[in-house]
Nucleic acid binder design. Structure first.
Lengths: 256, 256
DNA sequence: ATTAATTAGCTAACGGTGTTCACTTTAATG
DNA sequence: CATTAAAGTGAACACCGTTAGCTAATTAAT
């Protein structure tokens, strides 16, 4: 009964995809209910209506499943962010970057446990990894979660590069660019090197990169503190964020 | 054989304290080697040379042990921070706050796994807690880890209050105080309320509080990113920090 | 259409975990 | 010295992730 004469997905493939989706859904619901450490393979098996051992036909291990989940979450986050950015016109770089921050924050807060898992994954193994890839391993197979994380950062980083390109094309001199303290040559070159991963496209001048990293640190701090409940404000979080974003823009040299 | 005629610690009490120390030491070494989730009660029992069940005479559960560990770590961190602050003269508030940031960062980086456990504890249960205390519970028994965390924050918060007091006493008008964007009354009052937990002592004006929270968010972001390996710099971290601190001081209205 | 190969699923087991309960040994107290 | 409270034991319970070997079903090839 080969229903695959047209090259379409075979029946088993469809069932397989469906089962994988069921497994992930069960895992996610456990994540939301009991947190990252409350995800149990056996509970998933019970949920899906299958033997624990059967799950190993779909994922090499519980860890592999969690990693896969993280990647899915990042895809979700990236899609949401990208959509929000594209709602603004292509040339409105400031608006687009603001949209990125805003949706990032919103997604993280709206999916706390997912976010918890996502940032706890590179973390969990961070002690034995160097910038995401285990020491002495090829750059190809750095862990996929870090890859997704970078992809997410690149959304904003690319916007920065485009922003700089626009600024450079339009204005002579320094049209309100960010002011930056003096730094050593070593720090300067290291920043340029490290950020080449996030900020792709045109080469961006150091002050821009520096201000970008500062803003990135602040956004990260905000989002992590909020999701973990240690932000110094709870009722008027939106306004607090907006004010913080305003201050970052001011650091960047803009008044809007 | 009552060696307790003088009211000193009985022999059993000494043994007990010693055993508790052994248990904690074993747990900590496991934490450092295998991370927070790699701490096993049975392994501790093996290590201490005792039956797993025996450990329940010392801690109600594994969770209780971990909480106790976190508290110890906070005490360690607090002691280190306090010592560094007191190395500067009592009136040098800026230096003392810088010392706080610096030691906080140094301790976290030097004790990554401990720090991981510490911040993952309020986190782990954050979804079901509101500002550290479970909904509908007295303020007395908020979880001890959060209490310690607040105690740590208060070190710096208290310094801010003292700083403001000094500034107010000395100068007329606004002697280089922080500039702050306009905020609504609701946000203003909420900030003042929430920060009353950190910032004890004299009532501090809103712009100071606002700048303080901004700096706190940035420091938190920096430390978390560094311990988790996502800081945009790895070789020249010290200089990067110093530059960031300089920028925060500038935000505060100081040039030093 | 029949056979061969691949895949999904099962059962059973291994070694590990946190936790509890009843029991014994040990140390401190009156 | 007898009594009481604490420390420690051993066995069990209910979980967990993971592996190996087997059976049934689907796909692919002849």
């Amino acid at each position: 009964m080969t229903s695959n004469t047209a090259g379409g997905p075979t029946r088993r493939e469809r069932m397989r995809a469906e089962t994988i989706a069921e497994i992930k859904a069960s895992a996610r619901s456990q994540l939301q209910e009991h947190g990252p450490s409350g995800i149990s393979l056996r509970a998933i098996a019970r949920d899906v209506g299958v033997t624990p051992a059967a799950l190993y036909r779909y994922f090499d291990s519980l860890d592999a499943l969690l990693i896969q989940l993280c990647c899915d979450f990042y895809d979700e986050l990236i899609a949401a962010t990208r959509e929000a950015m594209d709602a603004a016109p292509p040339g409105a770089h400031l608006d687009r970057m603001k949209a990125w921050v805003w949706v990032f924050r919103g997604w993280a807060v709206g999916h706390r446990r997912e976010f918890e898992l996502m940032i706890s994954y590179p973390e969990g193994n961070s002690a034995m990894t160097i910038d995401g890839r285990r020491a002495g391993q090829a750059a190809e197979d750095i862990d996929p979660v870090t890859q997704k994380s970078l992809e997410h950062s690149r959304l904003c980083g690319h916007e920065l590069a485009a922003f700089w390109k626009q600024t450079e094309r339009e204005g002579g001199g320094d049209p309100g660019g960010p002011a930056m303290p003096e730094v050593s040559d070593e720090l300067a070159s290291e920043l340029l090197d490290q950020c080449a991963v996030f900020i792709v496209g045109e080469p961006v001048p150091l002050p821009w990169i520096f201000s970008f990293t500062s803003a990135w640190v602040r956004v990260f701090g905000l989002v992590v503190m909020e999701t973990f409940g240690s932000l110094p404000v709870r009722e008027n979080v939106d306004e607090y964020y907006k004010t913080q974003i305003m201050m970052m823009l001011r650091d960047f040299g803009f008044d809007a």
